[in-house]
């Protein structure tokens, strides 16, 4: 419950911080950190235009997409407090429930019969497919290290002690950050601020969405950011009491948002044709984590 509330809270200003960081980095003043949220509320109040080509799928997809993100958030624990949903192997559910949202967002893009949206859908399907093994290998390694298979228990028993564990923590953070960037279609995989449809991934999929639906999709992105931020934060606070963990959580989320902003300001987007290779390399980082865990457990050969 705490994690759900906090993640929703953070989602209100996460993208705001990213945008603010980017503006400051490029020498502008930039909008307030709640501006993206205001935009979303405005969208909620607006009317919508639907394409004649679309069918029922296009109408339900944004809701299902949003619901899938909400479900995924419910799985996430907060330190010693379980998520609303917690059972053995819940991270499998986490990944698969996000996948169903993605399935619907892909087919809703195809529903418009537009060449641009088909293109975006094709890329989204491929990239998210390639990112999935990295997540599962990471969670598998952590499960092996801690001996548990649910988010809550894994994070509760994951402690820093040896040098290897620090290395693991850093690599796990890296993998989670990168997965988050891929899932949210941000730099270095996709540039949300590009103005050419041909080079977009996520943005081009939602070209035809408007009004409430667009608001849902945009806020789902905010929630997803906060959700991955919460996963990363969970790696660090173990079983600290609330008056420590909540500030740590907020600091980590802010740091995460600032680093996303910096990353987007100072890196260039990768070439579209090389994205697949790049994403697949993430799995090898996960494999490194796996071997690190083996070393810690003394199981290597």
């Amino acid at each position: 419950m705490i994690s759900l509330a906090l993640i929703i809270l953070v989602s209100f200003f996460f993208t705001g911080i990213v945008i603010r960081t980017k503006s400051i980095a490029s020498g502008r003043k930039g909008p307030g950190i709640f501006q993206p949220m205001k935009d979303i509320f405005r969208l909620f109040k607006k009317g919508a235009v639907y394409s004649e080509t679309t069918s029922f799928i296009f109408q339900v997809a944004p809701s299902i997409y949003f619901a899938s993100v909400v479900m995924a958030i419910m799985v996430i624990p907060f330190g010693q407090y379980k998520g609303i949903i917690s059972f053995e192997g819940d991270f499998v559910f986490f990944a698969y429930v996000l996948a169903i949202g993605k399935f619907f967002s892909i087919i809703s893009a195809l529903d418009t019969g537009s060449s641009f949206e088909g293109m975006g859908a094709s890329r989204e399907a491929l990239y998210s497919m390639l990112a999935e093994p990295a997540f599962f290998l990471l969670m598998g390694s952590l499960a092996l290290l801690t001996g548990y298979t649910s988010f809550h228990e894994i994070f509760m028993t994951f402690h820093f002690g040896s040098y290897i564990s620090y290395a693991l923590g850093v690599m796990a953070t890296f993998v989670l950050v990168m997965i988050c960037m891929i899932e949210n279609s941000r730099m270095p995989v996709d540039d949300p601020k590009t103005h050419l449809e041909l080079t977009m991934i996520h943005e081009v999929m939602i070209l035809d969405n408007s009004g409430f639906d667009l608001g849902l999709i945009l806020h789902a992105t905010n929630l997803k950011f906060a959700m991955y931020g919460a996963l990363i934060a969970n790696l660090y606070f173990g079983d600290l009491p609330l008056y420590y963990s909540i500030p740590i959580f907020l600091v980590i989320q802010t740091l995460f948002a600032v680093s996303v902003g910096l990353l987007e300001s100072f890196t260039a987007r990768y070439r579209m044709s090389h994205n697949a290779q790049f994403i697949f390399t993430l799995s090898s980082v996960s494999l490194l984590i796996f071997f690190g865990v083996l070393m810690m457990l003394g199981k290597l050969i």
Binding site: A48, E52, T53, T112, G113, S114, L207
Partner: peptide, 14 residues
Amino acid sequence: FTVSNLYKTSSTWG
């Protein structure tokens, strides 16, 4: 929400 608001149909954005 959408019933209370205006909505219309048009061709796909090209």
